[in-house]
Design a protein around this nucleic acid. Structure first.
Lengths: 231, 231
DNA sequence: ATATGTGAACAGGTTCACAGCG
DNA sequence: CGCTGTGAACCTGTTCACATAT
C-alpha cells in the first residue's frame, strides 16, 4: 500500500528505534552542557541515558560521524546535531483538545513547553470550561477547531478527550491537515496513511506491570521453575 | 510426530511484544462482550485492536489454543484467559507519589481504577497538599511512604514527582520492596535487577512526532529524493 | 467450507569484537 | 594507546502461506 520497497538506502533513513532514543541522549547531553562538561565518551553518555555504549555509538553513527576517535563527542556540537535531526531547531505549535484533568495537567506541564514546543491552543466541547484561562491560554470551543489550527499554524495535536469523542475529533483534525497526533484516549484511532499517531495509555502500562508482577509472585510461591535470573 | 526437540518450551515464556498487545485485545474484547458479541474471528478482533490477523493469532497462540478452527474465538472465554494471564483477576493496590497537576489527573482518571487496579494511596512532600482529599483519598506525607506501602499492600507505584525528586523516591520505594514502577518523571531511573520500570514521557513522544513531521516537510519542499542538506 | 495454529522465510534491532583513526 | 565507527553474528519479532482441525 503505502510501503515503499526502499531499494536504495535513504541517507535520512534513521531506524525508528534510534529516533525513539535520540530524545534520551539529548536530555542527558543538555544536562551535561549545563554542568559545563565539554566532552563525553560513548560509555559515559550511554550510562547517563540508560543504554549500552555499542547501541549508542550505532545510533549516533546514523546521524553522521560526529565523534573523535580516542576522545569522544563534543557535547555542545552533539546537542545541536541531535536537535536539528529531531526538528527542534524550529518550534512547533501544539493544540491540546480536551481540557479535563489530564488536558489541564498537560497544559501546565513545564517540560512540554521547554524544547521546541509551544502550546498554542486549548479546545473543549464543554461550555463550562470554554472561555476559561488555563496556563495563560484561553480555552476555545471545539467548533473553532479548524479555524484555530489554521490560524495558529498548529501542526501537532494532543488528544486528551474522553474515549467516545476521540475518533470524531481525530477525523476533524486530520481533515484540517494535521499529520501528527499524540493520543491519550484509550482507543485505537484509525487514520489515513501518512498521519503519524503515537499513543500514551496509562492503563496499558499498568497492565504490563501487573503481568510481570504476577510472574514474580508465581515464581516465588508457585514452583521451582529454575532460576531464570541470569541477566 | 508432535515431538518437540525444543529445550523445555516455557509455557509462561510469552514474548514481551505480545504482552504489550494483550491489553489492546482485552479492551477490544470487553467492548464486544458489552455489545453482546459471543464469537469473533481473528480477522475482526485484529481490526478492532489495530493489528493484522496473523500477528493476533500468533500472539494468542502463546497463551494456548483458545480458538475453534472454522469458527473463531469465544469472546467471554478469551476475556477471561487474557485477564488471567495479565494478572487482572486479582486487584492491585497502586500508590501515586507526587500530587501535582499530573498526579491529580491520574488519581481522578477513571480508566485507571477500572480493571484490576485500585488507587490505594496518594503521597506528596508539599505540606500545602498533604491532608487534602483528592478523588476521595487523603494525601499522606512522603515520610509515611514505607509505612503506607506496607500497610496497604501497595505493589505498584506511580511516580509523578518533579524530575529532581524521582530517583530519591524511587530508591525508597524499591527499598520498601516494590518491584513495579510507572515513571512519569523525565529522568532515567536506576534500579536493581528484578525491578520493572516503565516510563511515560510526554516530551519524548512529542520529539518523535516532530522528527517525522520535519521529514514530511523536507520531502515536500526539498524534493523527493536527494535531500542531502548542507552542513 | 472456513478460520485457527504454526513452521518457515523475512525484517529489524542488538550485541560482539575489532579494524581504523586520532 | 583509547575510543569511535562498523561489519558480522545473533536475537527478537513480523509476515507469509498452508496444513490442520472442526
Amino acid at each position: 500500500m503505502s510501503r515503499r520497497p526502499s531499494p536504495t538506502r535513504d541517507p535520512r533513513g534513521i531506524p525508528e528505534a534510534t529516533v525513539a532514543r535520540l530524545p534520551l541522549y539529548l536530555r542527558a547531553l543538555t544536562g551535561m552542557a549545563e554542568r559545563g562538561i565539554a566532552t563525553v565518551s560513548s560509555e559515559d553518555l550511554a550510562t547517563a541515558a540508560g543504554v549500552n555504549s555499542a547501541k549508542l555509538r550505532k545510533d549516533l553513527s546514523h546521524l553522521g560521524s560526529y565523534g573523535t576517535r580516542g576522545v569522544g563527542y563534543e557535547v555542545e556540537y552533539l546537542v545541536y546535531q541531535i536537535s536539528r535531526e529531531l526538528g527542534l531547531t524550529q518550534d512547533w505549535a501544539v493544540a491540546i483538545v480536551g481540557v479535563g484533568n489530564l488536558g489541564r495537567a498537560l497544559a501546565n506541564y513545564g517540560g512540554f513547553v521547554s524544547r521546541g514546543f509551544r502550546v498554542a491552543a486549548l479546545l473543549d466541547a464543554d461550555p463550562e470550561v470554554v472561555g476559561d484561562t488555563i496556563a495563560g491560554l484561553n480555552v476555545d470551543h471545539i467548533d473553532e477547531l479548524e479555524a484555530v489550527i489554521k490560524r495558529r499554524g498548529v501542526s501537532i495535536v494532543v488528544l486528551a478527550t474522553p474515549a467516545a469523542a476521540a475518533q470524531q475529533v481525530c477525523d476533524r483534525v486530520v481533515a484540517a491537515g494535521v499529520t501528527s497526533i499524540l493520543n491519550f484516549a484509550p482507543v485505537v484511532l484509525s487514520v489515513p496513511d501518512g498521519v503519524e499517531v503515537r499513543k500514551v495509555d496509562l492503563s496499558i502500562e499498568l497492565q504490563i506491570l501487573a503481568f510481570h508482577e504476577q510472574r514474580k509472585a508465581d515464581r516465588e510461591s508457585g514452583g521451582p521453575v529454575m532460576a531464570v535470573e541470569s541477566q
